[in-house]
Design a protein around this nucleic acid. Sequence first.
RNA 1: UGGGCGAUCGUCUAAUGGUAGGACAGUGCCCUUUGGAGGCACUUGUCUAGGUUCGAAUCCUAGUCGCCCAGCCA
Length: 568
Amino acid sequence: MTNSNPESQEARTVSNFLRDQMAEDVLAKKYGDAIVQTRFPPEPNGYLHIGHAKAICIDFGLADEFGGRTNLRFDDTNPEKEEQEYVDSIMTDVRWLGFKWDRLCYASDYFGQLYEWALQLVKAGKAYVDDLTADEIRQYRGTLTEPGKDSPYRNRSVEENLGLFLRMKSGEFPDGSRVLRAKIDMTSPNLNMRDPVMYRILHASHHRTGDDWCIYPMYDFAHGQSDSIENVTHSMCTLEFADHQPLYRWYIEQLGIFPSQQIEFDRLNLTYTLLSKRKLLQLVQEGRVSGWDDPRMPTLSGIRRRGFTPEALRAFCASIGASRTNGTTDIEVLEHFQRDDLNRRATRAMAVLNPLKLVIDNYPEGQEELFEVVNNPEDPAAGVRQVPFSRIVYIEQDDFREVPPPKYFRLSPGKEVRLRAAYFITANSVLKDADGNVVEVHCTYDPASRGGNSPDGRKVKSTLHWVSDAHAVSAEIRLYDKLFTKADPNDYAEGESFLSNLNPDSLTVLTGAKLEPSLANAKLGDRFQFERVGYFCLDRDSTEGKLVFNRTLSLKDSWAKIEKKAGS
RNA sequence: UGGGCGAUCGUCUAAUGGUAGGACAGUGCCCUUUGGAGGCACUUGUCUAGGUUCGAAUCCUAGUCGCCCAGCCA
C-alpha cells in the first residue's frame, strides 16, 4: 500500500498485462471474495537496486490499486548467502521507496510446514532420497536435447525413504551426501521437472533459525508453498522463472493447497547500468566503489545518497510499465523523471563550482547589498531569500571567455550580461597569471539595473549566477557521472571483463567551490538546484566545518550541446 | 539440435478484429532575470512471406531473429 504522494505528478500509469489480468480475476471472482494479495520476495543476499524498485512498484502498487495487500517476504532458504545486514537494508529501502508491507514474513517461518509437506510427498510415493553425488545428478539429468535417466535410488520404498529423510533431518549425514527429490519425470523437456531437488543437507547456521535445521528446502520447494500459505493470489516474478511455473503448480497440486498464480514479467535493464547482484558485490568487494551506497551505484541506497527521490523512482516505474519483452530502458528516462521531480521541488541557490574572481570597479569599496531572490520559480510558496552582494564576486570560469566562440552568450570583453537578481555588468579587462590563464575579470556595473532589472528595456543575452567573495562559504562538491562508459557494460573484448568498461571519470571532486551563505544551513535530505548547474544534496560525509555536496544530476545544458556539435 | 517466452518509431510502451497513440531521445521555432523550466511544430515504427476477413499490429500457417533453461543458487 503506497503512501500515494500528492505532490508527485499523477505519474501517468500505463496500462499493462499484469493489471489487466488482475482486473479480470477480480471481476471473475477467481478467488471468491478474497482480497488481492501479493508479495515482494527478495533474498537477503545483497542490496536492493533500481531493478527491484520496479518489482516493488508492481507488487505493492498493483495490490494497492485493487484494494489488496502486500507482504514483504524474505526468501531465506540458503543460509550460506544470507545475512541480517541485508534484511535490514531491504526493509529500509522498501520503506524509503514509500511502501508499507502488510505482513513481514520469512520463508524460514515455514520450514516446519515445508518439512511436513515433504513428508507427505514421501508418503505418497512422490519424493525419494537420492544418494547420487551432485556430479552424478547432473550427469543423470541429461542435457537440453537429451532426456535424463532415472537415478538408481529412484524406486526406494516409502519406508526406506522416510527413514532416510528423517535421518537427513536429524543430522546423521554430511553435507552433499544425499538429497530429497521429487519423483516427476526424468524425460521431461523442461529440465525443472526432471526430479528436482527438494531438500539438501547444509550444516550451516541460518540468520534466523540458527542451528535448528541441517536440511534446507530449495527455492522451488519453498516459493510456491510460501505464496500459498500467505494466500497470495498474484505471484509476480521475472521472466526467467517462467520455466519453473509447471513445477510451482505441481507442488501446489500434489499438496492440494491454495492455488496461488505465478505471473512473469520482464526484468528492468538500464543503459550504462549493471543490475547483477553478483557484479555489484564485486564492485564493492574490490573497492571499485566506496560501498553499497556509493552514489554511483544503482542500489537504492546509492541512488538515495546521490539525491534521487522515491517520488521520481515511482513515477519512472509507473511510466515504464511491465511487459514480457526483453529490452533496455534508456537511463535518460530515469534522469528525466528525476529532473522533473526536482525541478518542481528543489530549492534554488547560487553556487560557483569553479570560481573566477570578478571585480566590479565602479562599485563602492566596502559596500554591501542584500538582494531578494526567489527560492523556486516553479513554486511561489517556497518564498524568497536574501543574498548578499559586494564589490568582488565569483562567477563560473566557464562563464567567461576572453575570445568568445560563435553563439557564446556569456561574459567576454565588452559584453554586457546580468548577474542574477543583482546588476547588469560589462566586462572591461582581465588579469592573467604567468601561464596566461585569466585569473581576474574587471567590469563595471550599471546602478540603474538594480535587482537585475532593465529600466530602459535593454536586453542581455545571458544571466550568470554569482557568489559574493566576502560572504561565500566553501564546500567540497562531488560530481558524478556514469559508472560505465558503454551503454552495455557487459560488452567487452575477449579476455577482458565488465571492469574494463568502468568510467575513470565517474567521480570528480571539486574542493574550491564557493557557495552563497544560505547553503551553510543545509541539512541532510535537503535538495537544491544550484542555478544553471544542476541538482545537489548534502552528503553524509559533511561535518560541522566542512560541507560536502553530491551532484544528483546536471541540468540539461543546451550550450554543452552546441559546443559538442561544433567540436565534432 | 529439446523446451519455454517474445518481436510495434532510435529506446520503452499503448492500441484486446475498426483512425497505429504516448513518453524519452533528436531537430526546428517561440518564450525566458537559470542557455534551467515551459510552449509549439517536425521526423521516424507494426520482423518476413503467405492466408482468413468488408477490415489484421491483433487471428491462422510457415519462416527469421532475440532472450531464458542442463546449481544440492534464488
